[in-house]
């Protein structure tokens, strides 16, 4: 795709005609990685490795260096992973994240994806705060023919989640997807609210939520790591969904998040429509970073 030209392709330009790897070149390469929104700490980790290999003359030319960089980044992105098992049923997924990243839309996309596999799905509108958040999910529910459990605006989100699980059990659905309000990871009271939602869900259904997925916007910079860390601490995450990869951002934050938090990327969002969701494939992603 035109928009996903890899920033690492510039490595070639940098290395072109260089027979020797010197400090200046390594500095420039280091900077290049940061320009892809990989966190400064992860970049430093990558380069402490590379620099010592250069010092030991294990990496002698540009080509070797590039191959090595790609290998290091690949190993960082490939965290031990299991596919979402989708059982036991009802399989409960809690969607969390900061404001406007794409939580509600991603729930719609997942609903579409699951329905196509013949699964019975239920949406739960636990964002009772944002204006018309309930109507937004309901509109998707109508389009997809997926029922939506909701209360009135301003209601207690935990109570909605509880009713959602209750309904999921009664209606014997396969997957129940719970939408939550956007919240900055720095807002203590809102993060506490998330803990409560989680606790209430677990009380009603043993082992639930089975997945807590953090939605991250691919255009986010270094802050993405803070978001992931903070959400992970408050409500242990099982994975990440990276949205808005159809823009020109490179999503380099993926490398830092998989490297520093060992959390798998489950899906990527590549548009606003219900079909615009794809499973994350580490090889494809890394190839894209380096593609010309």
């Amino acid at each position: 795709e035109k928009s996903r030209k890899g920033f690492m392709r510039q490595v070639d330009d940098l290395l072109f005609g260089k027979s020797k790897i010197d400090d200046e070149l390594l500095d420039e390469l280091e900077e290049l990685l940061v320009t892809g929104d990989i966190s400064v700490s992860t970049v430093e980790e990558i380069f402490s490795q590379v620099r010592s290999e250069v010092a030991r003359s294990e990496l002698q030319d540009g080509e070797a260096l590039k191959t090595r960089l790609k290998a290091i980044i690949s190993s960082m992105v490939k965290v031990t992973d299991h596919d979402i098992p989708w059982e036991p049923t009802p399989y409960c997924i809690l969607m969390v994240g900061v404001n406007g990243v794409g939580k509600t839309t991603t729930i719609a996309k997942l609903g579409y994806h699951l329905k196509n596999q013949g699964k019975k799905v239920l949406f739960v509108a636990s964002d009772t705060f944002r204006a018309a958040a309930i109507e937004q999910l309901q509109t998707w529910g109508e389009r997809l023919d997926i029922p939506v459990i909701h209360h009135s605006p301003g209601a207690d989100p935990s109570a909605v989640a509880f009713d959602g699980i209750q309904a999921a059990l009664k209606r014997q659905v396969d997957v129940v997807l719970i939408d939550t309000a956007g919240r900055l990871h720095t807002k203590v009271n809102l993060m506490e609210e998330l803990k409560k939602i989680r606790k209430v869900i677990g009380k009603r259904l043993d082992g639930a939520p089975h997945e807590v997925l953090l939605v991250l916007d691919a255009t986010t910079g270094q802050n993405a790591l803070n978001q992931a860390r903070q959400f992970h601490e408050v409500t242990p995450l099982t994975g990440i969904i990276l949205t808005k990869l159809d823009g020109t951002a490179r999503g380099g934050i993926v490398v830092s998040i998989t490297n520093e938090l060992k959390l798998p990327i489950r899906f990527i969002g590549i548009g606003e429509k219900m079909e615009d969701l794809e499973p994350f494939e580490p090889e494809v992603f890394v190839d894209a970073l380096f593609s010309k």
């Binding site: 940061v34 320009t35 892809g36 929104d37 900061v98 406007g100 916007d217 255009t219 986010t220 910079g221 270094q222 802050n223 993405a224 823009g247 020109t248 951002a249 490179r250 380099g252 934050i253």
Partner: peptide
């Protein structure tokens, strides 16, 4: 514009 935007802010 979102204050959390990364390197892509300039292109946008």
């Amino acid at each position: 514009a979102d204050a959390m935007t990364g390197q892509d802010a300039v292109n946008m």
